[in-house]
């Protein structure tokens, strides 16, 4: 294992986050805080409880998951896309590093940034809303697993994209709608039966449901199924990355 290479990539990527602190940390915290103010304090105060939880508290796991997914994807996709765009990828391809070490460096850094951001959002939420965490170990587990899985997914998008537009398409056109329709702002039990069934095809439902269970002990779907779905998605992403490095797809001619 080329540990020095993993460390070099990891530190390089983390340094990029500190260099762009406003964009990496401050902006997502601000936008999530606005959600808390608008949906939590303003609108939420006029809404009833859901599963015995105040609306403002109910949306915290969903909002956190929304930031976690979008930041994991954008951090990891930009991290590997920019060297391709600027031409510096030659150094990575000519270095004595294995695909696993490259993934550990880039995805590890992207996931670290997302987890830090998630924890900061959680602290910020306390300024606006009261909440509890019934299963803190599970909460951290969901946080880590989701950050790693979606950083890996972002890494795949960064490898696949050959222009900046493609870099944005999946997060904006797929992930964002799936998250909004995945129960971030409502329980899927509030939907008519037909749409409840349709919603079960949305993988983000399982993430948010499991994550909310770690906070309040209530879930739309069984927590084991939620964990299983995340692990299945993680394995699919690992297989895709393995295939990309094996074939050199969009990396080597």
């Amino acid at each position: 294992m080329n540990v020095y290479a993993v460390r070099a990539i990891y530190r390089f990527e983390m340094a990029r986050a500190w260099r762009t602190l406003m964009q990496s940390i401050a902006t997502p915290i601000l936008s999530t805080s606005l959600y808390f103010v608008v949906f939590g304090a303003a609108i939420g105060s006029r809404m009833g409880e859901i599963d015995g939880i105040s609306y403002a508290s109910f949306i915290i796991p969903g909002l956190l998951m929304l930031s976690l997914l979008s930041e994991s994807i954008s951090n990891a996709s930009f991290g590997i896309y920019f060297p391709k765009f600027s031409g510096t990828i030659y150094e990575l391809l000519s270095a004595p590093v294995s695909p696993l070490e490259i993934v550990l460096g880039y995805v590890g850094a992207a996931a670290s940034k997302s987890v830090i951001l998630g924890l900061l959002i959680l602290v910020t939420a306390r300024l606006f809303v009261d909440y509890e965490i019934v299963h803190p170990v599970w909460m951290v587990g969901f946080l880590l697993l989701t950050a790693i899985t979606f950083s890996l997914f972002g890494f795949i998008i960064g490898l696949w994209a050959d222009d900046f537009q493609k870099l944005q398409i999946i997060p904006m056109m797929v992930i964002m709608p799936l998250t909004f329709l995945g129960g971030a702002f409502y329980s899927i039990n509030m939907l008519p039966p037909f749409w409840q069934t349709v919603t079960l095809f949305n993988p983000v439902v399982y993430l948010i449901s499991g994550f909310r269970w770690s906070f309040y002990g209530v879930a739309d779907v069984n927590v084991i199924i939620s964990v299983g779905m995340i692990i299945v998605f993680l394995l699919l992403c690992l297989m895709a990355v393995g295939w990309i490095f094996k074939t050199g797809y969009r990396l080597k001619s």
Partner: peptide, 12 residues
């Protein structure tokens, strides 16, 4: 930073 990165990338 960039020369340090290169050295690390090559396992040194």
């Amino acid at each position: 930073a960039t020369v340090n990165f290169s050295r690390g990338l090559f396992g040194k």
